[in-house]
Simulated scan of single mutants.
Amino acid sequence: MTARTRYYKLYDDVYIPGRWDLSFPLFKDGGESGAREDDDERELFDTWRFNEGRILEIERPIRLSMKPAGIALEFSEAMGVPIVHRRVVSFFERLGLQKEVQFIPVEVEDQTEPWFILNALRVIRCIDDARCEEVLYWGPEDGEPDRVGEYQNVRGLRVDPEKVGSANIFHPWGWQVVLIVSEHVKQAMESEGITGAKFIEV
């Protein structure tokens, strides 16, 4: 019997002493990335797009600030958006995962080296409801008719490995705030010594 691949939530270790804290992404010209001024009209720049599992075209350079400044980490998050050092980009290339991720350049305050948003390019319907601690769904009574039947909350996330296929990094459909990696990627990141990354099995 072939052992199932194990999967892990990849997240930011917020308890590293003296670590940096990256701000919400901003456009390089100083305007918030939550909005774009064009002929007095405002076009929303929704950071949720980084959870949609598709290649993005970002027209304006993005910069991040540190509040407070601190130790730079090779993997961290700015309001849930994964930010990685160029060493992580090279690492994923060595693993042959270029088709599963997009790296979007960003500028980080007081940093001269390249940094990137990690944009996972797959969303997979794989949550194992029966094994999760709790799942809640949007219902008709919640006043969000477009979301009826979708996940409202997931506690103790578990995925069904048989539904994942060959993916090594992805968001689970319906709960895309979570970034998941395969055991292969987890072990490789740990061996590589990528700073800032933590894992919990799902």
Rank of each mutant, 00 (worst) to 15 (best):
T2E: 12
T2V: 09
T5F: 03
T5G: 13
R6Q: 13
Y8D: 08
K9G: 04
D13T: 05
V14W: 12
Y15G: 03
I16C: 08
P17S: 08
P17R: 08
P17W: 07
G18K: 07
G18Q: 04
R19S: 10
D21A: 09
S23Y: 04
P25C: 02
L26D: 02
F27Y: 15
K28R: 08
G31R: 11
G34C: 09
G34S: 15
G34M: 10
A35D: 11
R36F: 14
E37S: 12
D38M: 06
D39K: 13
D39G: 08
D40G: 13
D40V: 04
E41A: 09
R42A: 13
E43R: 11
F50G: 02
F50M: 03
I55L: 06
L56S: 07
I58R: 09
I58E: 15
E59V: 02
P61K: 01
I62E: 05
R63V: 08
L64M: 05
S65A: 08
S65P: 01
S65N: 12
M66E: 15
M66T: 11
M66R: 15
M66P: 05
K67P: 03
P68Q: 01
A72Q: 11
F75Y: 15
S76Q: 14
S76W: 05
S76G: 11
M79R: 08
G80K: 04
G80T: 05
V81M: 04
V81F: 01
V81P: 04
I83P: 01
R86H: 14
R87L: 11
V88N: 02
F91L: 14
F92L: 13
F92D: 11
F92C: 08
L95E: 12
Q98K: 09
Q102P: 08
F103G: 10
Q111F: 11
Q111R: 15
W115T: 05
W115C: 07
F116C: 01
F116M: 02
I117S: 10
N119I: 00
N119L: 03
N119A: 05
A120G: 04
V123H: 07
R125K: 15
I127V: 15
I127L: 15
D128Q: 07
D128C: 07
A130N: 07
E133K: 14
W138K: 05
P140V: 04
P140M: 03
E141C: 04
P145F: 02
D146K: 00
R147T: 05
E150G: 10
Y151N: 10
Q152V: 04
Q152C: 12
N153W: 09
V154F: 04
L157F: 07
E162Y: 01
E162W: 02
K163R: 15
G165I: 03
A167V: 03
N168Q: 12
H171Y: 07
P172W: 00
W173H: 14
W175L: 09
V177A: 14
V178N: 12
I180F: 06
V181Y: 01
V181P: 01
S182W: 00
S182L: 02
V185H: 00
K186V: 02
E190D: 09
E190P: 00
E190F: 02
S191T: 06
T195G: 01
A197F: 00
K198S: 14
I200S: 13
E201M: 09
E201C: 05
V202K: 00
V202A: 09
V202Q: 03
V202L: 11
